[in-house]
């Protein structure tokens, strides 16, 4: 099975690398990062702006490109499935190919401009922060590509799937935060700091945002809750929890989608 996963993965990866979309995505991310870096006067400010990219654009692109690839590739999957190949390997090969190529596009898009900025001596690059930005963006990409496959595998109709994907994106980026804000306002009379931390760690997008913000000077603005957050994430347990939460967000939809795929009647 491992050989088959690798073959499918390799095929998916090369197929995606040849596609125009992936290249355009990498270039888009690269141009946006470069623009923010070179046009602005402060790399910290640029990091905050790239963070916005991670929160808004990366999830959406991962979802949409993931779905597009899934549907475009459906006939190929069907063809492969008629061969004596385990179903699981077809699915995991596809997921790995998709997730890693999108991650690669994101990483190169962000890292190259920052590296050039540093190498050209245009200013100090705060590599720990950029590193966190890269890590968090990569995790968000993986989370949303596995969500994309889950939505894709569970729906035959692509318009419906696209609708669901956008709804998922909207819920995680906007609705979730609105509910959190409503909770904060309604439960003001209670000691809710720990709850707020817990709730924001449940959402991969919020978690990504907080992880990066705590790396920036901006953390001092985040007041008591921010300090608590920082203290918690400063501990081994806190870091482990944060990483575990992101990994769970990647693995759970992937496994669920794998089960649907395994039982699916194509």
């Amino acid at each position: 099975m491992r050989g088959a996963v690798y073959k499918i993965f390799k095929y998916t990866l090369f197929d995606l690398l040849r596609s125009r979309w992936l290249g355009s995505y990498a270039i888009l991310v690269g141009l946006m990062t470069a623009g923010l870096l070179y046009l602005g006067d402060d790399p910290t400010q640029a990091a905050v702006s790239v963070l916005n990219l991670v929160i808004l654009v990366v999830p959406l692109v991962s979802l949409v490109l993931g779905l597009m690839y899934h549907y475009a590739n459906r006939d190929f999957a069907l063809l492969v499935l008629t061969q004596p190949v385990p179903r699981g390997s077809v699915y995991w090969g596809q997921l790995l190919g998709l997730g890693l190529s999108l991650t690669g596009a994101y990483l190169s898009g962000v890292a190259v401009p920052f590296a050039a900025y540093g190498a050209l001596g245009m200013g100090e690059v705060d590599w720990p922060t950029v590193g966190m930005l890269l890590f968090v963006g990569a995790m968000v990409t993986l989370v949303f590509s596995s969500l994309a496959l889950f939505v894709g595998v569970s729906n035959d109709e692509r318009v419906r799937a696209l609708g669901i994907a956008i709804a998922v994106w909207f819920v995680l980026t906007f609705v979730y935060d609105s509910l959190l804000l409503a909770f904060i306002i309604l439960a003001q009379a209670y000691p809710i700091d720990r709850w707020v931390i817990g709730i924001s760690m449940l959402n991969p997008v919020d978690l990504a945002r907080v992880l990066v913000l705590l790396h920036l000077d901006t953390a001092a603005l985040m007041g008591y809750t921010g300090a608590l957050f920082r203290k918690f994430l400063g501990t081994g347990l806190g870091t482990a929890t944060a990483v575990l939460a992101l990994v769970l967000w990647t693995v759970v939809p992937a496994v669920l989608a794998g089960r649907v795929f395994a039982r699916k009647d194509f």
Binding site: N52, L56, T218
Partner: peptide, 8 residues
């Protein structure tokens, strides 16, 4: 303040 820089 936890929502600082959130798209919302």
């Amino acid at each position: 303040l936890v929502l600082l820089h959130s798209p919302l």
